[in-house]
Design a binder for these strands. Structure first.
Lengths: 353, 353
DNA sequence: TGTTAGCACTCTAATAATTTGAGTGCTAAC
DNA sequence: GTTAGCACTCAAATTATTAGAGTGCTAACA
């Protein structure tokens, strides 16, 4: 596939660059004028070759050329100039320190959407491989027990359990001890029915209610309903003519609203990623049909060993890849820093005396 | 405004009904044929009158008539036939019993969007007037304290507080006692700095850390970030030609994604509501500019004394008002029942032995 | 052998011209 | 008060026309 001589590469690059900017099919004359001192006829010959090789196509006979998926791929892999590191690092934004992961993720995805002007999404760190750090149940009132679970990375999950009567103090203490000793360090996968019945036996309290509560705690941990995909800038699809006709925009925004399919697709991504953790899907590379006219770029972030999430954008194939990659790298590292790296600081602001 | 004789009312009703169904301006002939045995010429005369009175207009000289906002208003207030109660109650759906309010609301709003085919939203019960029911702090690890607050209606809020060192057991116990006795039954508005410093004094522990934790707990309670608007069916805007051109759809979906302006508008609604709790805003009735071509219908639900939220839909002015009102009433009551009324049942399902 | 000027040809997109038909308002008769 | 009839209007759909960007190919040139 690497049978392109230098001139063809230059021309291909010129075509793609130009198309990225204008969105119009680019003709031989444009290239001839602005990039090289070759006549348009010569360029035409080269273009014919590039078309035969599959890097570009004509939307119709008497039009200029636009890149194929393969053309984009070659551009991303070989031609694209990465942005200057120094410039990009400059933009160091401090995310508001917050006790809630959710809030942080929402901030990050908003920044991403703003910076890139593409629809952006972020998948919260998966709990599959995440470990239980702390469990606690308490009586809230006569009919409700609250169960709270803190996972590695300080993800908090909670659930209110409806019960017939409150647990007495002694049982409560026992159960809390039990829960912490048994569940600490386990992952979602480690928690199953036998473990629960095991704990029940250990508890030594033979009430129906104990089993119910234990089950609910297990449920609380395994429940991944609230570990979601956060999105921002869905309406950015309208910015790009190739995606903004009603039908396409509708499908895309819908996929963005549904989030389920998105989440699944992105989850797959996490596995495929290479050392940089960055993936570029062009057109049909991504498995979702509605996204055949889109490119998807994702970056996997890691908040601790095995605690991975994904951040990414969806936009037209005609995308400013360099800028997107730059932003993703940047946010990925800042996100990781915000959670892992930063020194402890006050959370409440200290403007009041 | 009530100077319409019966025949005019019938004709106006016919025009609006027809327009709701077809979306096309309706001409005199259509009315003459299907609704009354009057000639089209007679209908034309009446229409001219109705136009002069402001209930209908012609989009252009040689077109049929469409209702004005005033026409719709008259229809909603006086003409519209409410749906049969029996039929509507039939559709009694059980919402999955869940410990999480958030989940319940998401389910409800999804059902609403599905039933009506309009963009739907639900505003979580406001905490302003909601009371603290239970507070608890605990050491999660050496550097983190978890604060959990349960409000009336079992809304759970939590926050992880970063600290220099864990609180010793004794202090922890003391603080928990203190928090519960001091905060129980208070609303967000009741919680202020003097209360906090008061508590700090009572604690008798003169460490920096105590104040920090107390402040954070207060923050946890007052934080309304996660009491949000949930939406569903934003892409339904595309179903209605009058809203589906790029510009409008974009603005509307954007408003739906932003949620902030929505939330504010809806919050205002809560106050205006009459005994039924239902409000219909037609066109410019709603204060948001982007919604001038829309109607907004909202219902206020109440989960306990003073704990109010709002559920509503946004759609074209040409809307099936009867169906929407019916659905809102229905869901409002079911939502209230799901939280308040229903007898305690197992949360964990009992299919396993 | 690679490059280039030139020309006929193609096809889209924009503009203009034409047609169609639904609907009105008005008048005059019932 | 109601209605038939007719001239008139205007949006929307259809068709024709034009303009222009771009191509492929050929033949000449260095």
């Amino acid at each position: 596939m690497e049978q392109l001589d230098e001139r063809k590469e230059i021309i291909l690059n010129a075509i793609i660059q130009n198309y990225l900017e204008t969105g119009e099919p680019v003709g031989s004359r444009t290239i001839s004028k602005s990039y090289l001192n070759l006549s348009s006829a010569t360029i035409r010959n080269e273009m014919a070759d590039l078309e035969e090789l599959g890097y570009i196509v004509q939307p119709h006979t008497s039009a200029g050329r636009i890149p194929t998926d393969m053309g984009y791929r070659f551009y991303v892999d070989h031609l694209m100039a990465e942005k200057d590191k120094e410039v990009s690092q400059m933009q160091e934004l401090m995310f508001e320190k917050t006790g809630k992961m959710e809030k942080l993720l929402k901030q990050v995805v908003k920044v991403l959407a703003n910076n890139t002007q593409y629809a952006s999404m972020i998948l919260a760190p998966s709990v599959i491989s995440n470990k239980v750090k702390f469990v606690q149940i308490s009586n809230v009132d006569d009919n409700h027990v609250l169960s709270v679970v803190v996972m590695e990375g300080n993800l908090v999950k909670n659930r209110v359990i409806e019960v017939e009567k409150p647990l007495d103090n002694e049982t409560m203490l026992k159960l809390n001890m039990l829960l912490n000793t048994n569940l600490n360090g386990l992952t979602v996968n480690d928690i199953n029915l036998s473990l629960i019945s095991n704990m029940k036996d250990q508890a030594g309290v033979h009430e129906e209610i104990v089993e119910q509560v234990l089950k609910s705690v297990a449920d609380t941990i395994t429940d991944d309903e609230d570990l979601e995909v956060y999105t921002s800038g869905a309406t950015n699809f309208f910015k790009y003519p190739e995606l903004s006709d009603s039908e396409k925009a509708k499908d895309l925004i819908n996929a963005f609203e549904e989030k389920k399919p998105l989440a699944e697709f992105i989850q797959d991504v996490e596995n495929e990623s290479d050392e940089t953790g960055i993936q570029v899907y062009i057109g049909n590379d991504s498995s979702i049909k509605t996204m055949k006219d889109c490119s998807v770029v994702t970056a996997t972030y890691e908040l601790g060993e095995g605690v991975k999430g994904t951040i990414g954008i969806i936009g037209p194939k005609r995308m400013d890849y360099a800028n997107v990659l730059d932003n993703l790298k940047n946010l990925k590292s800042q996100l990781e820093k915000a959670v892992n790296g930063s020194p402890a600081t006050d959370i409440v602001d200290s403007d009041s005396s």
